[in-house]
Design a protein around this nucleic acid. Structure first.
Lengths: 340, 340
DNA sequence: TTGAAAGCGCTAACAG
DNA sequence: CTGTTAGCGCTTTCAA
């Protein structure tokens, strides 16, 4: 039977003070002055008993969990570890921890993860919403829990809700990539778009269409293939695209993971990249420069996106900001390499 | 001013029962029988008020956080997202969430992460220990918090401590890779070993040495290079190795990330792989098959390692197991590809 | 079958 | 300057 963990009460007794005083020195409360000598006695007792604060009790009383929740599609997609690190690194500076949830593009899982916030598991939330809408978030927001979206935020938001958004313009970014392909002489350009009816896909498809239109390239819906945002999704989509007659001369994949699946499909089919088919991705994951041929893609600065998202949450949490929704557009960089 | 969140007390009043009854129906307590009609009334009140349980209060009272902490070097190393997913997937099945901490191979950070467990933030712990020893963990373990190590567990452990370990034998695995290199005709084999004085490095170096010895290949300490477990660490180490005269004809990198850095160094130096220098990695991260040339490596089944680690923790948590430390050796597979 | 009551360990008024 | 007090919202005896 392990000895029960010492509490503030025990420390107080050992130091010959009241339990409140222990709390004061522990939290270095400014509104109260503790005699240096008393403080020393308390600290000695803490050290001697090996007292460690109980985080749960502190949370219940202070109504803060010192935790933020991050809801992403899949940590296994190399874009997200960088993003999560950005969040974690920022959180750590503030003595916050982060709970991460994977939704795998599943509606129910996305909702389930949201529950973490509703059940007071987290003081703030960062989410890549696939299915959830602002309306769905209102119950959480109106409870005072700040949320940062990692997609663009459209429409009106009641000005008193602690909601912000930070992301690139998916459409502008996709347009940049496709315009690059067009500038390289391609006019028959396929797209591997990812999971349908999700914000990342829709914005990127939109950008693709805009680029075509701007350059008077006719749109052919047949050239847009779905799948999910995984390597195998890209593989399947590319196989479909390769079966088309005539074949596209270039393909834009809405993320690098799919682009890599596509690369494998090409390799298997004996189709050379970029000679027979040019291929561009999206995200600039670490592996992008290592594959063969190195992937032309678009860098959206995952780590600093994570940092920024966390900063937005913290600015609400510490009262630094309390105005209407901020809608931030982050920069991105086209990274031309050898695949297109 | 948002209306205060309803509590069990509010639900009780609305349903005309006592607060305890609300808790009973919420937790479906078996030792107590609730009239179906009462239960229905309570559930109606819950729905009407939009009651959501307060996780923190529940934790304080029940002394369980429904959280496990995972302490890893760096989520940005592609080996770890898979591992973490294994942990998360297992945790989710049990309605547990996971808090992830990155140490970046830093001693202070590793200790700081450990504090999460000590402060009752987590019911169990999974850790890739770099600096922490079993002795350091005793205070946590003797408080009843189970821990699973992701390295081999050596020495004696008091039988009543809830400590387990699950991992491959790093030495056997490294030996397998190096033996393969020797079988391919190499005798001058360099090693890029990773961060010194850490368990992953020491076991892999040990396996390397054993393989050489078994095949009567003389050991040359000069051929073992350190660095950290990152791509740039591998890059630097390979540059050193390439500068040696005579140059090694093969190199074993203790993880794939370093192998990829090494690949870049070779490419820059105009040294062809595998013709002029063979290169083998360790981990079989997703990018390993995509680089050029595809990397010969060793798969250590990250996802199922994560699952297993979590299962060991949960078996302690739910009382399924309470015996002495389990030391599990997981399987691994050599994956010959084109780089060696 | 249900209710009353006692805390879990802590923070934060408020008194002294 | 320090102590007293009142809960935070919940689970879990124990009584009725």
């Amino acid at each position: 039977m392990p000895t029960a963990r010492p509490t503030q009460h025990d420390v107080a007794r050992a130091a010959g003070v009241s339990q409140a005083v222990v709390s004061y020195v522990l939290n270095d409360v400014q509104s109260v002055t503790i005699l240096p000598e008393t403080r020393a006695r308390v600290q000695a007792a803490i050290a001697e008993l090996g007292y460690v604060p109980n985080h749960t009790a502190r949370s219940l009383r202070s109504r803060r969990t010192f935790t933020i929740a991050a809801i992403i599609p899949d940590i296994t997609n190399p874009y997200y570890p960088e993003l999560i690190r950005g969040i974690q690194d920022t959180a750590r500076d503030r003595a916050y921890d982060v709970l991460a949830f994977n939704t795998d593009g599943d509606r129910a899982r996305e909702w389930a993860a949201l529950d973490a916030a509703r059940r007071n598991r987290a003081d703030g939330l960062i989410i890549t919403p696939f299915f959830v809408t602002v309306d769905d978030l209102v119950p959480i927001l109106s409870g005072g829990t700040p949320i940062t979206l990692l997609t663009e935020l459209r429409g009106n938001v009641p000005p008193d809700l602690p909601l912000d958004a930070t992301s690139i313009s998916g459409a502008d970014a996709a347009r940049t990539v496709v315009s690059y392909l067009i500038a390289r002489g391609h006019t028959r350009i396929g797209m591997i778009s990812g999971q349908i009816a999700t914000p990342p896909r829709e914005s990127r498809v939109h950008g693709y269409q805009r680029a075509l239109k701007e350059h008077h390239v006719p749109l052919e819906v047949n050239l847009i293939r779905g799948g999910d945002f995984t390597e195998s999704g890209g593989y399947e989509a590319m196989r479909e695209l390769l079966g088309l007659v005539p074949r596209p001369t270039a393909v834009f994949a809405a993320n690098d993971l799919m682009a890599m699946g596509a690369l494998i499909a090409c390799r298997e089919a004996g189709v050379t990249v970029p000679q027979e088919i040019a291929l561009a991705g999206f995200d600039d994951i670490p592996a992008a420069k290592l594959v063969h041929p190195p992937l032309t893609t678009l860098n959206q600065h995952a780590h600093s996106t994570g940092r920024r998202a966390a900063e937005l949450v913290f600015s609400r949490l510490d009262g630094t900001y309390s105005g209407p929704a901020r809608r931030e557009r982050l920069g991105f960089d086209l990274v031309p390499r050898e695949s297109a």
